[in-house]
Amino acid sequence: MLSRKAQVYLIAFSFLIAPLTLLAIFTYYPIIRGVVLSFTDYNMMLGKAKWVGFRNYIELFKDEEFYVALKNILRYLIVVPFIQFFSILLAVLVNKRLPGIRFFRTLFYVPVITGAVVVSITWRWIFHIDGILNGLLLHMGLIKEPIAWLSDPRYALCAAMFVTFWRGLGYYMVIYLAGLQNIPSELYEAARIDGASSRQIFIRITLPLLKPTILFCFLISTLAALKIFEEVFLLTQGGAETTTMMYLIYDYAFNRYEFGTSAALSVVFSGILLMFTVINFKFFRAGSEGR
């Protein structure tokens, strides 16, 4: 008969063994293997890797596209504050108790639920040279000739950013809505009795209590912006100087079959993401101390 202690270990082990094995293979192992791979020339057919030292990294840093991608993901961060600002406003709006408000919430969430692929293809037709957007602008006399939104490097990335913004609003709106509904209503009542105006209530009560949610949303939308892929893949195929890190990682591995360089880029990109995560967590800590 096993002791109780040994029994507990055995039980814990039997619950954990399958999930931990999968985590080990698909989550932990790639961290190490990815770094090793970045120093090799990997042949997919033979499944063999040849050690090449830093050659992949050198090749990467010589590639102009790497710098375009780096610049683009940093530019993409502009989307983050806009998305957060407007989705908070949206959440406040749909948090009102009005007849039919659930219906509007549903409508605002439609772009989220339809997914990046459907949304991107839809917008590709809107941005089309003969598309509805050019039609509108021409009709209103704002432009004289149609703009090639998706093939002109001046506009292409902005177009992709707009699509990200448009389809992200509803997503964060729902998270903020959940945050707003978790704020106890007694606080609002007390403030109202004390004669606070709605603006004062928003700034003094809503915003401070929403802070953890705001910081959480900033973190995930920062990472999502840096990792942008679908919009670029479907709107421009990485053309018109819109390539991003994730697109380049995909491109190196699955179009050019340079797995080693792709791995090297993954390592560099992970470093960039780590940096932004640390920055965000610093804010997180500062935020929770401020409460």
Partner: peptide, 17 residues
């Protein structure tokens, strides 16, 4: 831990796996 460490290498390595 993986929540804190972003691992983009997973894409290629998992494909190979």
């Amino acid at each position: 831990l993986p929540l804190l460490i972003p691992m983009q290498g997973a894409l290629i390595v998992n494909f190979i796996t």
